[in-house]
Write a protein that binds this DNA or RNA. Structure first.
Lengths: 248, 248
DNA sequence: CTGTATCCTTGACCGAGATCAAGAAAGAAC
DNA sequence: GTTCTTTCTTGATCTCGGTCAAGGATACAG
């Protein structure tokens, strides 16, 4: 698997699709100008590894388009996904030289990159960047903790329902639809990837998907295309507190 | 359980035991003076609830002494601990009005508190605080992700060994001992709390503790006082990559 | 069309950990 | 001391999800 990088057309920050959500969201015009000079784009194909745990990382980046995953592995190969990088999410840690996780492109991915050292220097001088990064990191921490509850205490059916609810909600937000009604979306993950995320085997994922389908909670047009006839019904299956604040 | 608060003697920041590790670690003398004016101390007894999920929080705080836990609960009462607050750790989120987790004092706890609004104002003007908070939050995120791997993919024995290794290492660091040799320490958690942390029942925790004892990995003087004759042996039981970077 | 690869489903069986239950150990209150 | 409570241990049994195995669906190459 060669590290093919298709260089995409240079994009102006002003027209950037993640301009208002990424680490640069709070930047003023002059700050943006400086970032504009520093940035460069890199692309990765679906399935490609962006970084291995322990790799030296000389850049940090924002996801512009596509989805990447963060995962960790035990000695004997058991792996657990520990994070999902969506457009506008930030990859890398200022001050850290090496990757702490395996980062893999799930779909084709375009990233807006900055060499680490210059970025760190700029961050020290630009509170707007550090402020936004703090906010994003706190959100990720909340999401990680929500995931800990799922991994530690939910059963297989609840785990699947939770994942579907999250993907459905994100998709609905993207399409600006109203809540409560019928939803449909494509799952960007294989059964195995779902299992790695949920701490399950792919067989259990498959069985629970079939069970939710049999019980009418979801309808499958194809293996990957899902319709949720009643979102509230799906939410009931997650086991969450019904009033709960939703963090994803 | 009344909310008893024993007001401890006012402590000067200069003599504060967490001065060099807390959110104020990077502050200059003048910044510290301003924090000194704003701060107030609160104490909680072991077992007391510091905040319930959804409670309005009008302060943020650093743990000065003691241990507190963050936990989340499903509808039917299943609970999962999602974080451990140790001395110097920060509680609360700037910009958030309500508690996102149940916070409970495991031991007697003393906290150094700041009213939220003035603290937010100060943070906006004092990059040193925001920088340090970002650093601490990134560390917590790493710890949370390490925990996700444990919850999703480790078996009961590995989970227990991992928890013991973490507590042992922290204790050794505190006592400035050299690694590799024999260690002993007190477990600050009940079997039930360990279970809540590890996503296990208290019975399973008890059984695995007995098993590790039977196999000579640990020696129990009392239920809570643990001796680790060979730390490397304990590490082997965690299932982690042996070279692994350790985040706690 | 056929062969091959990837992804998914389903069945049979098994075992790790949960659940239910009883009682031991250790304090704390009196 | 005795009683009461909390914490912990251990046993018996059950069940959910893992493991092993076979085969179906879909896509793509030739």
């Amino acid at each position: 698997m060669p590290t093919t990088q298709i260089e995409p057309l240079q994009l102006e920050c002003a027209n950037c699709p993640i301009r208002h959500r990424a680490v640069c969201a709070r930047c003023e015009a002059d700050e943006l100008d400086r970032l504009e000079e520093m940035k460069f784009y890199r692309s990765f194909e679906a399935g490609q590894t962006i970084a291995w745990t322990g790799d030296r990382m000389d850049f940090v980046a924002s996801i512009v388009t596509g989805i990447a995953t963060l995962s960790q592995t035990l000695e004997d190969g058991r792996t657990q996904m520990v994070g999902l990088l969506l457009p506008s999410d930030f990859m890398g840690r200022p001050g850290r030289e090496t990757a702490a996780y395996d980062v893999t492109a799930t779909t084709d991915v375009v990233m807006c990159c900055f060499r680490r050292k210059p970025f760190e220097t700029m961050m020290a001088k630009t509170p707007h960047i550090a402020q936004r990064l703090l906010e994003m990191t706190l959100d990720e921490l909340d999401a990680a903790r929500e995931w800990m509850l799922l991994l530690g205490r939910k059963n297989a059916r609840e785990k699947i329902a939770s994942l579907l609810a999250i993907v459905a909600r994100r998709d609905a937000a993207l399409k600006m639809m109203q809540a409560g009604g019928s939803l449909e979306f494509d799952l960007p993950l294989t059964r195995e990837a779902m299992g790695d995320y949920l701490g399950l085997t792919l067989e259990t994922v498959s069985r629970q998907m079939s069970a939710l389908k049999r019980d009418g909670v979801i309808v499958l047009a194809t293996k990957r295309h899902i319709t949720v006839p009643d979102f509230d019904r799906l939410l009931e299956e997650t086991g969450d507190d019904t009033d709960g604040g939703l963090l994803f």
